[in-house]
Write a protein that binds this DNA or RNA. Structure first.
Lengths: 340, 340
DNA sequence: GTGAAAGCGCTAACAA
DNA sequence: TTGTTAGCGCTTTCAC
């Protein structure tokens, strides 16, 4: 059923039917109702392609996520969806697989499909590749970044302060020899955390010991392996993991080595993943506002899309703070932030 | 840059350019190469809408997931993506929110956007609403179902056998008074599990005790609350949870009540969620082939899409089996299926 | 092997 | 207020 048939059945021209859909105020009430009734009866939906061909707008955005199975990324995705859905947009969610090639392919698809905007979570692409989007006039927002890219609109969490805060907290619990399981991805966040870690230590007059900084894969397995390696070199009083998954792996390795947490070694993570208060002992970590990162990122994108004169839109970087979540694993004597 | 400009620059007609893209064998090699070069230079991509308007095919499928933050659903989604991406399709992933209204809205969006096919994971809609898709000539595949809907193509896991197997295993471990934390969603899977649970008990000559069957919300919190309720009524020897999340909540409630798992109460779940071997004690559960469910569902959909004469396509139901994963929480003396 | 032109379904400028 | 028509970018039929 197309517009012509509707027009015929309603005894009007296609233009009038089109007007009912796009500028109903320019159609006499009587005619309008008649046409609406026919549309209703026929269950008419305007052809998506024909509309797109005219408007050159898809009401679609693309979202590239590093890994679709990681709940934290999906939390961001949820934030994005909450915002854009309310504005009538629908989202392509694509799996970047932490892999430039896959991400690039996905990006191509999105460009070709003429999405109205793109959000990339922890992009693994270099700036010049991302710049390609601008050439195609597609607004872009980054959430997190692989390296500082001040030329792009972006939302990030302040990982440096988070790390510094956590290290200071661990120091406050009486731990001096604090190891760091650092994420090995080349993302800015990891570097930032390292800086914060060093800063925290220096604030107590401690010189960071390179032996206690282990680069690990960003996964439970990575944390497990890294901890095994760490323990083979030295025995810290506390382990700070670059995220909760790594911490879970560390916990398992410690248990396996017969080391009690937090009595013998304290442990802290980053992210406040859903399971962090289900493991034993419950994990001290930093609560990261993932959902909000998605919300702000999406709002930023909507803003750009709705700005007519792109030239006057100032590139913005939004930095959010995480929040210390003290639980049992760090050996603190109080228990704050338990289940739920 | 559109086809006309490419044609002009290459000194040919638009028809020839179009042919290079769609039927290159009908273009002289010389002309073909010349045109390809121009396309390359200009980074030309045919307009998505114009193509769609002609082909009436979007190379897009819609996937509706009950909850985007649930890793198991995303595991299915990953399976789907793995298949369709390889075929050049791209996926809209939408959040049904376990809510018929949201799901319906999303479905409308997908219909309007003329996706080539739709997969719904645990749809909350009634059959007649789903039948609407057929009216729009959009192929549909269900993964899991809220009630038996033999009229649709579908992939499911055999929950009845899973439950029966698990109950028999628990009985084999010496537990007789086995409680069941049953999911309260109105999905077929829950009923099936209940049937399997009863069957397992009866196989040992035990009459199911209604006091030991508690309907709980499908979540960690639900398991926690349900277990509290259960313990206030009676004290079972084992608790069988309808999924791992519920089991995690149960575990927390048991610990909080000072009840040791598995020494005093055994525990088992369903799903083999990622954290099930990270909790203490590691959880005995059923490994469900989520990824494969997605893969088979997607293949089924691709099959339908590629079948010219829809009339001759037989509706199929694919049932997959889960696999018992014995760990420590059920009090079994061996430990099988540990980490990784 | 190639080009001219009709047509996919819709929007909007222009005319009436 | 409504209708006529060009045009969005592409594919494909029909001529040549």
């Amino acid at each position: 059923m197309n517009i012509k048939q509707i027009a015929k059945k309603a005894g009007v021209s296609v233009a009038t039917v089109s007007r009912v859909m796009n500028h109903p105020e320019n159609v006499a009430e009587h005619t309008r109702e008649k046409i609406r009734k026919v549309m209703e009866e026929e269950g008419y939906k305007p052809n998506w392609f024909a509309q797109g061909l005219n408007f050159n707008k898809t009401m679609t955005i693309g979202l590239i996520v590093p890994h679709i199975l990681n709940q934290m990324y999906m939390e961001i995705a949820k934030g994005v969806e909450d915002v854009v859905l309310a504005k009538g947009y629908i989202t392509f969610i694509g799996n970047g697989e932490m892999n430039p090639k896959t991400e690039r392919e996905y990006l191509d698809q999105l460009i070709q499909r003429k999405v109205d905007g793109i959000i990339i979570i922890f992009s693994s692409l270099e700036s010049d590749e991302l710049a390609r989007l601008e050439k195609n006039d597609i607004p872009l927002v980054l959430i997190g970044a692989n390296r500082d890219a001040p030329e792009f609109n972006m939302v990030k969490v302040d990982a440096k302060i988070a790390a510094e805060t956590m290290v200071k907290h661990l120091l406050g619990c009486g731990h001096k020899r604090i190891a760091f399981l650092m994420g090995s991805d080349p993302r800015e966040e990891n570097e930032d955390m390292y800086d914060g870690y060093c800063r925290g230590l220096r604030s107590a007059g401690i010189r960071p010991d390179e032996d206690m900084v282990i680069k690990v894969d960003n996964s439970i397995e990575g944390g497990y392996q890294g901890t095994k390696k760490l323990l083979s070199i030295t025995r810290p009083e506390a382990i700070y993991a670059a995220n909760d998954n790594i911490a879970f792996g560390a916990l398992d390795a410690l248990k396996e080595s017969g080391i009690s947490v937090p009595d013998e070694v304290a442990l802290a993570g980053f992210g406040n993943y859903r399971m962090s208060n289900m493991v034993e002992p419950k994990l001290t970590t930093s609560e990261v506002p993932y959902h909000k990162m998605g919300v702000y990122g999406a709002r930023l994108l909507m803003d750009i899309i709705e700005t007519q004169d792109k030239e006057e839109f100032d590139t913005r970087m939004i930095t959010l703070q995480s929040k210390l979540k003290v639980r049992k694993s760090c050996g603190h004597n109080e228990r704050i932030g338990e289940m739920f």
